[in-house]
Structures are given as structure tokens and as C-alpha cells.
Design a binder for these strands. Structure first.
Lengths: 162, 162
DNA sequence: TATGAAAAGATGAAAACTCATATTTTTATT
DNA sequence: AATAAAAATATGAGTTTTCATCTTTTCATA
């Protein structure tokens, strides 16, 4: 065996010691989140919506008449983008803007009848999908994850609630 | 109390029974993932990189010389976008393309010395940040989450490994 | 009650992203 | 070996997204 060959055996691709990503919380979480969501997101597109639009519907389903800033935080959408998403969903008749009487800077977003119907359907489909997804996972992995992220969500969103 | 008032008490904003999102796994996971990552992503931008670029560096740090398709899967970046991100990082001297001798369709991406240095720094900072993040969380929440997503990542990525 | 700071949304322009598809190379089939 | 199908990457063009900034309205306080 040549000196070069030995060197290559002892100095792998890159990485000194342990690989980083398989032990990095933020990567694992993002990756798991994306992988789990993929399937339902595909379904959402099938229904003629983009993922952010689905998030808006879901947020309003839970709490209709939110103002844009709050909606943006919950739906994880940057404000100016959300403004334009709302323009578009408004044109499509899914929701409507109403200016807030008490604070005229605010614009409150309400689902139309059609929007509420679509939201209700998708929410119901999402619940069913989650059930299947969790069943498909081995052990109590799904339940474990859900319990943990629920607690975490509470912790991380404390203080910035509205 | 008027009939109207009673009706309003019984029929809240939208939502019939339980709110959906606070009990929806995919939302909770995405939301927690985004919230936890925010801080470090901000740091990454401070260092002059976008998040997808940081993901590329991290992937190559662990496994240098990957082909574009594989890198795209791991870094959760659409292929044609990754091609252009690589163009750009190449121009900036962070990495370089080398065509694969054995299969000339493939382009393998290697970190330059500068790129490897930057990757190593950021990986080290990411590890430190994760430590702090986990410490900040109450109970063993951080550890719980990490253990769970690690198991899940294994399950979800089985079969599509390379 | 003026006045400056902050909050909410909207918007123009630039940058980034996506989609479909082209090109090159390899693999599988006949 | 020829040919069709598949895989890997690149690219044009259209759409989205972002960033900074503007306007309007409210809040704090001197």
C-alpha cells in the first residue's frame, strides 16, 4: 500500500471527526418537517392552492378576522408577501379585507363563504392525513413528536402571543 | 341577554369545535422548526450567506465532492436553483465543480480551502448555538426533541438514501 | 394638544425562484 | 451494436419574493 493510499484512508472526504448534520438539531427538525409535510402539501397543490395560501386559510379557519401582521406571524409569511397573497385570494373570492373600525391602520381579513368551505374541507383532510401519517410511523414516534412539539410550541411562542 | 348575544357566545369567530392548528402536527413542527432556526439563520446572514448557501456548506463539510442531485436532496433545494447557487458560490471562491470521471453526466462539488474554512467555522458556531438553545429550553425538552427527530429522520430517509 | 416615535399595510424595483425543457451521457433492450 | 429510455445538469423566461421605503393612523409625552 502506498503512502498516498494510507493517507486517503485516514483522511476521509472532508469532516474531521463526527459528521455534523446527522447530529444537528436544527437540520434534523427542518428535514423531518419537510419530509412529513411533502405529501399533504402535494395534495394542497392538487386543490389549487400554494402552501402559504393553505396556511392562511387554516389560520383564518381557527380565528377569522385577524389582522395582516398577526396572520403573517402565524402563517410564517413575510408581511409584504402576505399582502400580495391576500390580494390574490381576495380576487379569487376566498377572503375579503375589512378595515378595522377601532384602529384604522389595521386591515382585518375574513373568509368568504367559499373560503370558509374550502378551509373546512382542507382542515378535515389534514386531520385525516395526520392520523394516517402517525399510524404509518413505527412505535409511538408520531405521538412522541407531537407531544414534544406541542410543549415546545408553547414555550417558544410565549410572550409573543397576541 | 338578547338572542343575538347568546348566538355570538355559542358561535365563536370561525371554527366550530376545537381549533385546528394548535393540535396539528405538521403546523407545530414547521412552526417550531422556524422559530428555533431563526436566530442562527440571522447569524448566517451576518456572515454574508443565505440559508441555502449555509446548507450547502454544511452538506459538503460532512461529505465533500457530492453530486448536485444528492446535494439538492440533502440541502432541501430544488435542482435548478442549486445549480445557480453553486454558480454563485463558485464565483465567490467557496467551492468548485469537477466533472466525475466515471460518469460524465455528474458534476461533483468540492469545497475550496476558503470554503472549507468557512464551513468549519460555521459548523462550530452552529454546534455552540445548539448547545445554548437546548440549555435555554425548560426540562429536557431539547434533548427529547433531538432524540425524537433523530429517530424519525432515520425512519423517513430510509430507502431514499444514496 | 402639538409632536415625534411607533405600528400597520402597501408598493416599486431588484433579486431569487420555478417550471418546462434542452443537452449530454449512461443504461437497458432488442 | 443500435435504439429507446433514463439520469444528471443547465438554462430561458415568466413568476414570486424580498428589501427598503412610503403613507396613514395611533400612541406617548412633553
Amino acid at each position: 500500500m502506498t503512502a498516498k493510499a494510507v493517507e486517503e484512508l485516514e483522511a476521509p472526504a472532508t469532516s474531521d471527526a463526527q459528521p455534523f448534520l446527522p447530529d444537528y438539531l436544527l437540520f434534523l427538525t427542518a428535514s423531518v418537517s419537510a419530509a412529513m409535510s411533502e405529501e399533504f402539501h402535494e395534495h394542497v397543490r392538487t386543490r389549487g392552492l400554494r402552501v402559504p395560501e393553505w396556511r392562511v386559510l387554516a389560520c383564518l379557519h381557527d380565528d377569522d378576522g385577524q389582522m395582516i401582521t398577526r396572520l403573517a406571524r402565524f402563517a410564517m409569511i413575510e408581511q409584504s408577501r402576505l399582502t400580495r397573497i391576500i390580494d390574490n385570494m381576495d380576487e379569487r373570492g376566498l377572503l375579503e379585507r375589512r378595515s378595522d373600525k377601532a384602529d384604522r391602520r389595521r386591515v382585518r381579513i375574513f373568509l368568504t363563504r367559499a373560503g370558509a368551505g374550502l378551509a373546512a374541507e382542507l382542515v378535515s383532510e389534514a386531520r385525516a392525513h395526520e392520523k394516517r401519517l402517525i399510524q404509518r410511523l413505527p412505535d409511538g414516534l408520531g405521538q412522541d413528536l407531537k407531544a414534544t412539539v406541542k410543549r415546545l410550541h408553547g414555550v417558544l411562542w410565549d410572550g409573543e402571543q397576541d
